[in-house]
């Protein structure tokens, strides 16, 4: 049964990582990256490394999306500003 659980979490990590690469829009990519972080945390816990999973959760669920979305917002604003000047 442990093997089945490991297999399921590995498949979910592979699927969400592929989706994170395939999605092009950065704002949507941030959402997929958050889900990839959740899948990785489950995988780390299943292979008995809960400390790594804990840090993955702390970084992946709130911090990475926040950084990405703030960068996207800043870049968009700068683009609008320069577009208005011309």
């Amino acid at each position: 049964m442990t093997d089945a659980l490991t297999l399921v979490s590995l498949l979910l990590v592979a699927a969400s990582a592929t989706a994170a690469v395939a999605v092009r829009d950065p704002a949507r990519q941030a959402l997929v990256l958050a889900v990839l972080g959740l899948a990785l945390a489950v995988l780390f816990t299943v292979v008995q490394a809960p400390d790594v999973g804990l840090s993955q959760l702390a970084v992946g669920s709130a911090l990475t999306p926040l950084l990405i979305l703030l960068s996207v917002r800043k870049v968009r604003r700068r683009g609008q500003h320069e577009g208005g000047d011309r």
Partner: peptide, 10 residues
Amino acid sequence: GFGPVVWGVA
């Protein structure tokens, strides 16, 4: 639960 979530988010 998590399989449909990956599909829905992608």
